[in-house]
Every structure is written in structure tokens, then in C-alpha cells.
Design a protein around this nucleic acid. Structure first.
Length: 570
RNA sequence: GCAGCCGUAGCUCAAUUGGAUAGAGCAUCUGACUACGGAUCAGAAGGUUAGGGGUUCGACUCCCUUCGGCUGCACCA
């Protein structure tokens, strides 16, 4: 049990003794460290409903508090804050417990949930672009964090493999396909086919019918078209896998939109029979007359021409997932513009009797330096592959400049770790709902809240240990004894790791973990400056070495949960 | 028109059930240096949290309202 939860349970006991609801026993790190290390605002919250003076309530709680083994006498301050100053001995014990814990103080949740996370979802025959990067990176980090906390997570890549674009792709495949180009750069070739047919349609409108015919044939199960489609999907996936491999991201499930085709018709019929959906202007819609925000916004599930829509597929997908995984929660990691869509789908799902906790993990856009949606100079989407390679190249030139002694192969590996880490961190460090401006300069800077800064903090600690080994200093079996202020601050920060992960998952916000790691690195650097490690001796030296070692492990683990690796040198 | 998101330091962003004097980074300024990796640290300066009203002991946070930006809104996904 963490020090914080230990304090919390003591507060709960005191609340019961004082006749107050123990659910109010919330202990947080002190907002202002001048007042102490931890605080509880329970007295002020309780005073509100009890209609009593907060300070008197606080006094009643403190009278029942038994924390002598953990903290100095709790102080009441301000409007009714109760502050705890942790005893050095208790702090030392707590941080030693983290040191000896493989999980670094992260306590698995008492009630593990089955969480299905839907993210990335690129479109077949189109390149992955910056629009997919946030979904991919956010989804992957949430997966790692949820699993670390003991949840059962299923990752599902709901790829767009059944769009109307296939009419054009198939027509192009039949008339203009370049096999060699397809082998070499599959998506590039598929995009070329698409564009070629597009241009053809412009100059020769008569061709449109034929192109539409190819799509209809595909939908009706025509063997040749189905085979072309299958190949297009397989070639596209091959290229996606290259990117996922580079990013070190894997999926448990990869069921595209096409997988649900057969379920769409019966689903719509069922919704009609149940009276959930109705015919309107030739289409089938679900109306939400009882939900003010959706009153005038029906959800279309079958077009007048019999075709199905985005919402239809999403509902069918949801039903399949309920059946297959029985998830407690389903998280959709997609952009904020789709909020209305999910509002509708979730409302419809509720009428279908689906009770899982459905969440739209929405995020903002990536903007260019001009503060508009990030595009290339010619106005096209920026391709993810190119962007990642540019990141690695830029990182390489920094590494070459900063460290001239490294062998070439190691340099490239370091550049990969730093470049990809920088891109991922720049994205995750932001509150997910805010749009953010993409800046190479900022994300690759070694100063400030960036991946390279955190990676460097880790590298610096590793360097201390290499030095220790060279000079024969033992780094085994060290016990941490907290004394100096900088040691206290670092130790307190280390104890927060588990708590932070819980907070991240509560609201699907990895930026809280980024913030935590940044503050941890800061706390370490202050400690590093104020408390000489190798220049000290005996128990102090071994204590400080151990503190540095735990810091390195938390940094490495925390960054790992964000999908970011660390080098040993850089 | 309806709905959603957002508006915080010059810039980019934080702010843990509504809590203490709204915090970081970048940029600017001042210190520390033959350095356990200075790729660092210590410090200064920088704010009417878009405006107004309300609830509260207490509001960046909740409610109402005005302004401004972005996005979505029946047969694309």
C-alpha cells in the first residue's frame, strides 16, 4: 500500500470516528510544499453538507487521527486544510518499498475491467497521415497504462477497408496497374491509380458509370473484384505494419469495416422491428426526440438507395464486440469532430440494451506553424512515414553534433529512439483535447518538457553507474535513507508514480504522466546538483546511488508506458 | 439556426473530488563553471484566467449571459 493510500485509510478511520462519511477521505500531495507533503480537504468538504465551521470539523478529524508513525502532528491551516509532514523514517521506508517492488509501487486495481480500445484505424489504399498519429499514439499509451494497472485490454484496429474509393481503385487496377511499383511502394501505387481514375472521370464523365459499376460488382461479391480488393487490403496492411513495427505498436484484433458487412442488413431490420429506427424520406433513421441535444439530429443508418453508413457499421461492430469480448468499457480514440457521431451511436447503443461504458476519447488537431490544420505546401496531408523518418534524421544530426565519439550503428539506433520518442512525447504531453502546433524545434530540444530531456535524465543516471562500476563502487543492496531536502523532494515524487497512472486512466489523459515524468526529471536534477553522489561516501553514497537507480527505473518504465524507449548513452 | 470543443504570462502549454499566493517550458535578465554528462542548477521578471453576472467560506474549474476562434449537423467515413 502506498504512503498516500495509507494516509487515506487513516483519515477514513478518523472520519468515521468523527461521524463523517469516510468516502470523503481523499489525500493528495500538498499543493504547496511549504505547508507539508500531503493534505486532505475532507474537513472543508464535510463542513459544507454539515453546515458547520470547516476549522472546527478539521479539529474534530485531527483529534481522531492516528498517524504518529507516518507524519508529524497534522496541522490545520487556512479554511480547514489538514496538512501532513511525512517523517524522514517513514519516507525512507516508503521509497525503499518502491525500490524493492518490481512494479515500482503501482498497485493493480481491485476490480480489473475488460477494456476494448479502438484506435489508429487507417484507410486502405491511402497513406497513413498525421491525422492518424494522435489516435495511434494515444491509444497505444492508454493500452500500456491500463495493462500496467491490471486491466484486461483488447486493442482493435478498425481499419477502413470498405469505402466507395474502391470503385476507382478497382477500375484503375484493371487498366493502369504497375506491378513493380505496387511491390515497391504499394500505397503510393494505389493512390496513383485512384488519382488517375479521378482525373479520367473529370475529362470523360461517361466513365463514371463504369467506375460505379465496379464498386457495385464488388459489393455483390464479384470474384475478380473481390480478389483485387483482397490484394489491395493485403498490400496496404503490409505497409501499415512497417509503420507499426517502427513505432513498436501491435494490435490484438484487426477487424476492418468489411468484416461487419453481412451484419448490417439484419441489424437495420432488427432496429426497425424493435421500433428503435423508422423510415423517413426513404432512409432509415434513429430519432432521439427525448434527448434535447439530438432532437433535430437523427442518426441515419440506411440510405434511400439501400446503402449503409458509418453509424450502421459502428453499431454492428459494437454488437459484435459485446458478443465476442463482453467488455466493461469500449474506448474510441478518434478526433473531436466526431463527437456528434458518437453521441448518436452511444444513444442508439443504449436503446439496443448495451450497457458497457462507452467513451469517445476525443482529441484535437495537429496544426502547422500557420495555426491551421497541418498540411504540406501543396495542401495535402502529411504522410506519417515521411514524418517519422524526418524525425529520425533530425535526431541523428543532433546526436552527431552533441556526441562525436559514438560508433555509427549506435548513433542510428539512438537517433531512432530520440526521433520517435520526440514525436510521441510532443503529442502525448499535450492535453488531448487542445489543438497543438507541430514544431520540430521544440520537440527535439534537449531543454524543457521534451522526450530528449527525459531520455537525457535517464542517460545521466546510467552514466553515474558506469562511472561507479569503473571505480569499483558497489551498487548492490543499497538502502535509501532520506535526509537532505532535495532527497525528500525526489523521494516524494517517486512515490507518486502509481497514483499518477490511476489519474491518467480516469480521464484517458497521458499528458498527466508526461507532466509527472518531467517533474521527476526536474526533481532528480535538483537532487543531482545539491547532493553529490559519487563524491560522497559510505551509507550516504549508497543511499544516493539507490535513489538514482529507482529514479532511472521509474523514468524508463514511465516512458515505456508512453511507448517511448530510452538509450543507455546519447 | 442547433450542438460540441476551446479562449490562462510575449509564445507554447499546465493546474489532481471546487481549495491555500494560478504553475512550467521557450524567449528575456541575474547568478553558479577547469563540471558525478553545464544537454545542468539557483534566482528575477512576466497574469483583471476573453468580458459581465450568479452559486460558495472559497471559482480557471459549476450555472447564466455576451464576445471571439475551431468543428460538426440525412443519405461520405
Amino acid at each position: 500500500m502506498s504512503l498516500q493510500s495509507l494516509l487515506q485509510s487513516r483519515v477514513a478511520t478518523a472520519l468515521i470516528a468523527a461521524g463523517i462519511d469516510p468516502a470523503l477521505a481523499v489525500v493528495t500531495p500538498a499543493a504547496d510544499t511549504r505547508f507539508g507533503d500531503y493534505q486532505t480537504n475532507a474537513a472543508m468538504v464535510a463542513a459544507k453538507s454539515l453546515k458547520k465551521n470547516p476549522r472546527e470539523v478539521a479539529a474534530a478529524i485531527v483529534a481522531h487521527l492516528q498517524v504518529g508513525d507516518l507524519s508529524e502532528v497534522p496541522q490545520i491551516a487556512g479554511a480547514g486544510f489538514i496538512n501532513f509532514k511525512i517523517l524522514d523514517a517513514a519516507l525512507s521506508d516508503a521509497v525503499n518499498a518502491v525500490r524493492l517492488d518490481d512494479r515500482l509501487g503501482v498497485v493493480p486495481v481491485a476490480d480489473p475491467k475488460t477494456i476494448l480500445i479502438d484506435f489508429s484505424s487507417p484507410n486502405v489504399a491511402k497513406p497513413m497521415h498525421v491525422g492518424h498519429i494522435r489516435s495511434t499514439i494515444l491509444g497505444d499509451s492508454l493500452t500500456g497504462i491500463a495493462r500496467q494497472l491490471g486491466h484486461h485490454v483488447i486493442t482493435d484496429n478498425h481499419i477502413g477497408d470498405w469505402g466507395t474509393q474502391f470503385g476507382k481503385v478497382i477500375y484503375g487496377w484493371k487498366h493502369f496497374l504497375n506491378r513493380e511499383a505496387l511491390e515497391k511502394a504499394p500505397i503510393e501505387e494505389l493512390v496513383r491509380l485512384y488519382r488517375e481514375v479521378n482525373a479520367l472521370e473529370e475529362s470523360n464523365p461517361a466513365i463514371k458509370e463504369t467506375v460505379r459499376g465496379e464498386l457495385v460488382k464488388l459489393q455483390q461479391g464479384d470474384e475478380e473484384n473481390l480478389s483485387i480488393w483482397n490484394q489491395a487490403v493485403a498490400y496496404s496492411w503490409k505497409e501499415f505494419e512497417r509503420l507499426y513495427g517502427l513505432l513498436e505498436i501491435t494490435f490484438d484484433e484487426r477487424l476492418g469495416e468489411s468484416f461487419y458487412n453481412d451484419a448490417l442488413g439484419p441489424l437495420v431490420e432488427r432496429l426497425l422491428t424493435k421500433g428503435i429506427a423508422e423510415l423517413s424520406e426513404g432512409a432509415v433513421c434513429i430519432f432521439f426526440r427525448d434527448i434535447p441535444a439530438l432532437e433535430d439530429k437523427p442518426c441515419l443508418i440506411r440510405k434511400g438507395d439501400g446503402g449503409y453508413l458509418y453509424a450502421t457499421t459502428d453499431l454492428a461492430t459494437l454488437e459484435y464486440r459485446q458478443e465476442r469480448w463482453k467488455p466493461d468499457a469500449v474506448w474510441y480514440v478518434t478526433g473531436a469532430p466526431q463527437q456528434l457521431h458518437f453521441h448518436q451511436v452511444f444513444a442508439a447503443a443504449q436503446r439496443l440494451g448495451i450497457t458497457s461504458d462507452l467513451r469517445h476519447v476525443a482529441f484535437g488537431s495537429i496544426l502547422g506553424e500557420d495555426r491551421k490544420m497541418m498540411k504540406t505546401r501543396s495542401g495535402e496531408n502529411v504522410e506519417l512515414g515521411g514524418l517519422l523518418h524526418e524525425a529520425m534524421e533530425r535526431a541523428l544530426s543532433v546526436v552527431v553534433e552533441k556526441n562525436r565519439d559514438l560508433p555509427d550503428a549506435e548513433r542510428h539506433e539512438i537517433a531512432r529512439i530520440i526521433g520517435l520518442g520526440a514525436v510521441k512525447y510532443a503529442d502525448l504531453m499535450q492535453h488531448r483535447l487542445t489543438d497543438y502546433v507541430f514544431s520540430w524545434e521544440k520537440m527535439l530540444s534537449f531543454q524543457g518538457n521534451t522526450a530528449p530531456y527525459l531520455q537525457n535524465a535517464y542517460v545521466r543516471i546510467r552514466s553515474i553507474f558506469r562511472k561507479a562500476a569503473e571505480s569499483g563502487v558497489s551498487t548492490e543492496e543499497n538502502t535509501i535513507v532520506i535526509q537532505a531536502p532535495a532527497e525528500r523532494a525526489l523521494a516524494l515524487q517517486l512515490l507518486q508514480f502509481g497514483e499518477v497512472l490511476t489519474a491518467v486512466l480516469d480521464d484517458q489523459r497521458p499528458n498527466l504522466l508526461c507532466l509527472y515524468l518531467f517533474e521527476l526529471a526536474n526533481a532528480f536534477h535538483s537532487f543531482y546538483e545539491a547532493c553529490p553522489i559519487l563524491k560522497s561516501e559510505g551509507d550516504i553514497r549508497s543511499s544516493r546511488l539507490a535513489l538514482a537507480e529507482v529514479t532511472a527505473r521509474v523514468l524508463k518504465t514511465g516512458l515505456g508506458l508512453l511507448g517511448i524507449s530510452v538509450p543507455e548513452r546519447m
